[in-house]
Design a protein around this nucleic acid. Structure first.
Lengths: 199, 199, 199, 199
DNA sequence: CCCTAACCGAGACGGTACGTCCGGTCTTAGC
DNA sequence: GCTAAGACCGGACGTACCGTCTCGGTTAGGG
């Protein structure tokens, strides 16, 4: 009975969408996050501001979409199809694949997370679409290692992923030290062995 | 010899400084980060905008100063003077003390880190003044544990702190799950033992 | 063919325009020129500053428009339709009509001319819209007087108007003496007869 | 008994005064009136703002003083010493001498008069120090012409000067037409003869 | 095959805040 | 006690974007 408030997705202009996402990504990467604005995206995409506001709630959401779309355009990593090897080697491979996808756009990812601190809606989208899923392969591998008895059975795979990824995001967002492939490998070793000396 | 461009700190008005920091903190805590503006701080502090721009480069820097000043005003518990107990217990105490200081202003801390993602100068100040120093007690305790043979000698204390704190900051900034004292304790246990099953 | 830089006048909001002009006039008359500011006009008119800057280059231009609009709203007495009388009488009538329109806002007119001294664009607008046209009736009457042989044929009507009006503007802008209707009449007599004793 | 509010002129530093006046004049002539500010004058003169505010009430007053000082430095016109010639010739000479002094700084003079429209104190100073006195020689010559019977005895010399100078100031301040020596001569002729045809 | 509703570009609008300039007052140190 | 220097409060500047809105024009589908 009530008139629908949401716009009809079928009538969405794919060219405009594409132009907007490309413009957002280009601005974010070329001039940095601070220079991104809805107004700027609209101008660069040759699009009315209205068209952006119709489909996205904020500039963060646009950039997130643009960034996610770019990641999906990549020659998709086939973690699933990979042969199962030893635990450490598999973790190195999994993190390495993710690393290859994002290593050239770390500042953009950091800016998105930064923006999400004052934008709960963006925070949710970011977690649901990008960050949450990205730890699934690690959690899966942890679970298989638990089944194989390599890892304590009562460890929570989600917490295990946090132990591993926490180091990475801390570097990305806070610590003024390099974040590179070698560091990732060290993170894996440290997470696997922990701090206590083993007998 | 060259004429200094920076203003003379001796002529700084301490009352203005105090009013500005208080206004910044009040705004940040009451209305949230997004509502903080140089203009708003100046108005609430009864101060010219120029006076703020003279001494701080950005609103982030003001809020950081305000936040740091508040932390230092606390009746400081000095971890160093504490009786040395067992490793896990000391870590629980150290993290607990830090936690007590920041637990009522986590969103503000998160916003500061978020802002720092697009503001390298703020990022540096934040690390130097707030975040870097906060992990020193943990690193110290790790070093003593290494001397005592509890922890592998070749582990880097800084990396050890990253293993521990990474989990905390990941929760704070990214993961949509609760961050509380119980979680901190779990972080310590996980970091100490690592993922691999011990024989 | 080239993209126009100027905004499209068709999209101009007539209500905003009206509110701006009224606010400008009210501020200029109530508080005096010095208290007029774009910011103040915008606030009083309930309008964004941008809307003013979009259509006017300076506060002087706004006030000029407001002042000119107010003059045109007056129940216009058309000198042209007036019965032709003797030269002096007609001049008295013409100056009197102009006088009636501006006598209650002389400081505003003076301020506009004052402002125009440092603003060539305003000076041009002021001359084109207000001051230049105001001497036309005098020039017309001079021309008819030349045709009737009352005035030397080789006198330039524009210069004649300058002789007459110069005295008036000198009083308005420079001389600290009263400018009133009686003075206007004396200006006419002096301009008509000149200084040299007639035989 | 009461402490004097006005500063003691004897303690005035002549070097500062000179530097201020020179700086004011240089700024006014080089960058135009709009770029003149107390702050700018102080910086250029190497003087504290306080020193300017102590001796002048406004930037207009400073520039007026600077301008007046410059005029007095000129090789002073000796109108008084001039041989008395015929009326028209003397007027041409008197106006010509004034013209020679100001012709290279007309915009500055116009700006001063413009500023005086919103600054009654400046208006008074301007009239007393510069503009009023400048018409004295003309009034004197008019009086002598009246005594000689060349000019109607009942004409007010002050009004006569207004008739003559009004044309000049109108050009300077309002009319977008050239103001040059030839024009001055025409002003004299028109003022002497008036508009009415002589029998 | 036309009508009408939604999309689209463009951009004007009321606002908020920006970072800068300057006005006029006050403080500090030096002579 | 004047001076150079400049910090201070305050107000306005002109600009950048925000998110909403209105305007024609185009496009798509249901009558």
């Amino acid at each position: 009975m009530a008139a629908p408030r949401t716009p009809d997705p079928n009538r969405r202009n794919p060219e405009s969408t594409k132009a907007i996402l490309e413009a957002a990504l280009a601005l974010a990467r070329d001039q940095g996050w601070a220079k991104v604005s809805i107004e700027g995206i609209a101008a660069r995409a040759g699009v009315g501001k209205r068209t952006i506001y119709r489909w996205w709630p904020s500039k963060g959401a646009v950039v997130l979409d643009a960034y996610a779309a770019r990641l999906q355009d990549r020659p998709y990593m086939n973690a699933a199809a990979a042969e199962e090897g030893d635990l450490r080697g598999d973790l190195v491979r999994i993190l390495g694949e993710t690393w290859d996808m994002v290593s050239d756009s770390l500042p953009l990812l950091a800016s998105l997370i930064g923006e999400a601190q004052h934008d709960p809606d963006l925070a949710e989208r970011l977690w649901e679409r990008l960050i949450g899923p990205s730890s699934e392969p690690v959690q899966d591998r942890i679970r298989r290692a638990q089944a194989a008895g390599e890892i304590t059975a009562d460890a929570d795979p989600f917490r295990a992923a946090e132990l591993l990824y926490g180091q990475v995001y801390l570097r990305l967002l806070v610590t003024p030290k390099p974040l590179d492939a070698a560091f990732l490998e060290d993170c894996i070793d440290l997470a696997l062995h922990g701090l206590l000396k083993r007998p």
